Amino acid sequence: MPGRDDDGGAMGASGGFDPGWLRLRSAFDDPARVERLTKLFAGSLPENPRLLDLAAGTGANLRYLAPRLGRAGQRWVLADHDRVLLEAAGGEVARWRQQASALPFEWECRQVDLVRDLDALDPAAFDGIVSTALFDLVSADWAERFVHWLAQAPRPVLFTLSVDGRLAWAPEDPADDEIRGWIEAHQATDKGFGPGLGRHAPSLLAGLLAERGFDVFTAESDWNIGPADTAMHGALLEGYRNAALEIAPPDRADTIEAWTQSRLKDAAQSGLTALVGHVDIFARPR
């Protein structure tokens, strides 16, 4: 899944996402996730569930969900195209499991190109399917292809932390609207799946699932980044700067740079807060 994370994260040397960025964002992902939808997903699973995590990265979904599912004998497949991230996932999960050793589960990492080889995965082999921060990166065509694939053997799904276009900083800056526009334009570029859905992902995916006979539940799962979160502000601002510079004409570069430096100064002085809007989706076959 080449490209930049729509939340601003940079790519790593492998062409995928930097494991350091994934580690940083997990501290904001976990509080943002919607507990009610997690419980609905858990309640839809059998006692010994087989679970597939698409675009699993370093295994953050497993580490968050496994202790909350209330199911023994969980068996996880972490699927991602990026070998470097999957290798990191093995270490991250192993270290985490040392602190959660009483939890009975198995896991394996599987390198899968979701663009070319989605059909190599069989939805019937799993009892539930999850993914985090994937669907705002994909195209409408790929989302339709995915839902068609899922409909072959409908399973409960939990898709978390898709951006929905809400992005705000306090205090406000006169250039905020322009920067948001460039970020949104960048989100619509090809991240390896075709033109990205960006902020349209939650509504389009929910609609496709409903059309295929799923009951669909959605809820906002926002990042709230406070004045003390200087590392996160810095990572996001640099990511947004780079995205804007890729999209904007050269004569807007000075405005983008000035905005970035002003915001970085605010963050360094603990004078900046930000809201990054996301949506979680739980869907189950009727």
Rank of each mutant, 00 (worst) to 15 (best):
G3A: 01
D7H: 14
A10H: 10
A10I: 03
A13R: 10
W21D: 07
L22C: 05
A32S: 14
S44G: 10
S44W: 06
L45A: 03
N48T: 09
R50H: 11
L51H: 10
D53E: 08
D53N: 01
A56E: 06
G59L: 02
A60N: 09
N61V: 09
Y64D: 13
R71L: 13
R71D: 13
R75V: 11
W76K: 04
D80A: 10
A88G: 08
A89L: 01
G90I: 00
E92R: 12
R97C: 01
Q98Y: 00
S101D: 12
F105N: 06
E106R: 13
V112Y: 07
V112R: 03
R116T: 13
D119K: 04
A120S: 15
L121N: 08
P123Y: 00
D127H: 12
T132Y: 04
T132E: 09
F135M: 09
S139F: 06
A140I: 07
D141E: 14
W142F: 10
W142L: 05
R145D: 07
R145C: 08
F146Y: 08
H148A: 15
H148C: 10
W149I: 04
A151P: 02
A153K: 07
R155W: 06
T160C: 12
V163P: 03
A170K: 15
E172K: 11
A175K: 10
A175F: 14
E178L: 15
G181K: 02
W182Y: 11
I183W: 11
Q187R: 14
D190K: 03
G192P: 00
P195T: 05
P195W: 09
G196D: 02
H200I: 08
A201S: 12
S203E: 15
A206S: 14
A210W: 05
D215I: 09
T218S: 01
D222L: 07
D222W: 02
N224Q: 15
A228T: 13
T230A: 11
H233R: 09
A235L: 06
Y240T: 03
N242H: 12
N242W: 08
I247V: 15
A248I: 11
T255K: 12
A258H: 10
Q261K: 09
K265S: 13
D266H: 02
A267N: 05
A268P: 01
Q269T: 11
T273L: 02
L275T: 13
G277E: 04
H278L: 03
V279A: 02
F282K: 06
